[in-house]
């Protein structure tokens, strides 16, 4: 006998798989909902910028301050920009961005679509000659897939700036020396895998949020649940994807 929990998990995974397949089936056929895509890009991308920037700035600052004592112990204080830039670009900025987006976008999409489902807005769209899957799901998933990488690039920049300030709290690293060291250390194999994986993060956040909202059960309780589980599952998925991304880039020798 298969345990009930496992059965439910597998059924859910299968449903998400079918939902994803439906996305690929429908998203790239006309009609294209460009205006709605732009609207979602505005909400998902532009509106998240402030939150992502603040988080990234703080992470950059904190990581730099926290890394310093260890480096000082080795007498390698001059390596601070190098070490910080690698950890920020490769891991911290993309993952923090994805997590913030999972929290903000995932719950937003989950709650919005959930309440649309509950109040029959999705049905209303359908009878208004609109494919709600294209109009609501495809645009949101695409917007999340496209905006999260851009947010991650900005988070990279802002967190490095935080790192610059952090390096200057106890020591003195000039503006040009800092950036010189950063770009001397970074290679394409640091930047490309970290940006490529954010596309997957964005896609996962969008798909999970939409799936949970679109399949929300009736009632206001259902809306809350779908928002909540959208955040939980997409955050978890971000880490799983990150693990996969690291393994794959490791296999491909992007070290």
């Amino acid at each position: 006998m298969v345990p009930k929990g496992l059965k439910r998990f597998l059924a859910e995974a299968g449903e998400i798989g079918r939902f994803t397949a439906r996305f690929f089936n429908e998203a790239f056929k006309p009609r294209y909902e460009i205006q709605e895509l732009l609207r979602q890009c505005y909400f998902i991308g532009y509106n998240s910028l402030g939150l992502v920037a603040v988080t990234a700035f703080i992470m950059g600052l904190v990581i730099t301050i926290q890394s310093r004592p260890t480096l000082v112990e080795f007498g390698a204080e001059a390596w601070l920009p190098k070490m910080v830039s690698v950890s920020l670009i490769r891991e911290i900025a993309p993952v923090i961005t994805a997590l913030i987006c999972a929290g903000k976008i995932g719950s937003g999409i989950g709650a919005e679509l959930g309440s649309m489902k509950v109040t029959e807005q999705i049905d209303a769209m359908e009878v208004s000659g609109t494919n709600p899957f294209k109009y609501l799901i495809a645009t949101r998933v695409m917007a999340a897939t496209l905006m999260v990488p851009i947010l991650a690039v900005m988070a990279d920049a802002v967190s490095l700036y935080g790192g610059y300030l952090g390096a200057n709290i106890h020591g003195v690293v000039s503006w040009s020396l800092f950036w010189n060291q950063v770009f001397e250390t970074l290679t394409y194999s640091d930047i490309f895998p970290s940006i490529v994986k954010t596309f997957f993060f964005g896609f996962a956040i969008g798909i999970i949020g939409c799936y949970k909202g679109y399949n929300s059960s009736k009632g206001t309780e259902g809306v809350g649940q779908s928002a909540n589980s959208a955040v939980v599952i997409s955050s978890l998925l971000v880490f799983v994807l990150d693990l996969l991304a690291v393994q794959i880039s490791d296999l491909m020798n992007f070290t």
């Binding site: 919005e112 309440s115 649309m116 509950v118 109040t119 029959e120 807005q121 049905d123 209303a124 769209m125």
Partner: peptide, 8 residues
């Protein structure tokens, strides 16, 4: 629609 289904 019963719940009006106006787009929020």
């Amino acid at each position: 629609f019963q719940s009006n289904a106006l787009y929020d």
